[in-house]
């Protein structure tokens, strides 16, 4: 085998990896926030009684969920300019991940919305709230508590998808790791550390989500 482990090179460049991780997290946070807003709106549209709302929402979710995210990333960065839409690498990636997140979160939110008893909407109407007020003050907060577990795993998955930004040379964690790998040939060490960083971050996100769940839980 003749390969002796030597982590020194990786430690020397650890700050680059951390910067990459920070960018990964940044991309994830922004995209997921935008995606959550999109997803919430789409979720309400999916369960709406107006066909004009249900149909486009269904098409959006079905199409996005069946497309590889890498194709979307490349399309946004390389093909959109031909339509006159010129975005830089980070802008185009965030836009793609936001739209991608929106489709997945819409499904999560839809399941959550369906689990809320109809009686609550009726009670809200009875005291004179508008549908919009009911959605924002009653339905959405309740739904959020219900979906936190599945939302947590979706968020973790979307965070891992930030690695795709490496394909268009965005300097996030995977891209930096690959650079170090190519520069130093310390392949095993590089990938062990990169993987460890991702695993640790995912575990951290999971722990944070559990705390959020605990904080938001209704008193029993």
């Amino acid at each position: 085998m003749g390969y002796t482990l030597n982590f020194a090179v990786v430690w020397r460049n650890f700050d680059r990896l951390l910067e990459g991780l920070a960018l990964s997290l940044g991309l994830a946070v922004v995209s997921i926030l935008i995606g959550a807003a999109i997803g919430l709106a789409v979720a309400f549209a999916l369960i709406s009684k107006y066909r004009a709302a249900v149909w486009p929402a269904t098409v959006y979710v079905t199409v996005i969920r069946n497309l590889p995210i890498l194709v979307l990333v490349l399309f946004a960065y390389f093909a959109l300019p031909q339509m006159g839409v010129r975005l830089d690498k980070i802008e185009s990636f965030v836009a793609v991940l936001a739209i991608y997140s929106g489709a997945y979160l819409a499904e999560v939110f839809r399941a959550g919305l369906l689990s809320i008893p109809k009686g609550l909407t009726e009670a809200g109407l009875a005291i004179g709230l508008t549908p919009m007020q009911i959605r924002s003050t009653i339905i959405a907060p309740l739904m959020l508590r219900n979906v936190l577990p599945s939302m947590s795993s979706t968020i973790i998955s979307l965070f891992k998808d930030t690695s795709l930004a490496a394909a268009i040379a965005v300097p996030e964690l995977t891209f930096e790791a690959r650079k170090i790998n190519v520069e130093s040939f310390r392949v095993i060490e590089t990938w062990i550390v990169a993987s460890a960083l991702y695993v640790a971050t995912c575990a951290l996100i999971a722990a944070v989500m559990r705390q959020v769940e605990r904080r938001l839980a209704l008193p029993r």
Binding site: R178, W191, Y198, V199
Partner: peptide, 9 residues
């Protein structure tokens, strides 16, 4: 906990 791309690389 590891992105698929990282696994592939």
């Amino acid at each position: 906990g590891t992105p698929v791309l990282v696994l592939v690389l």
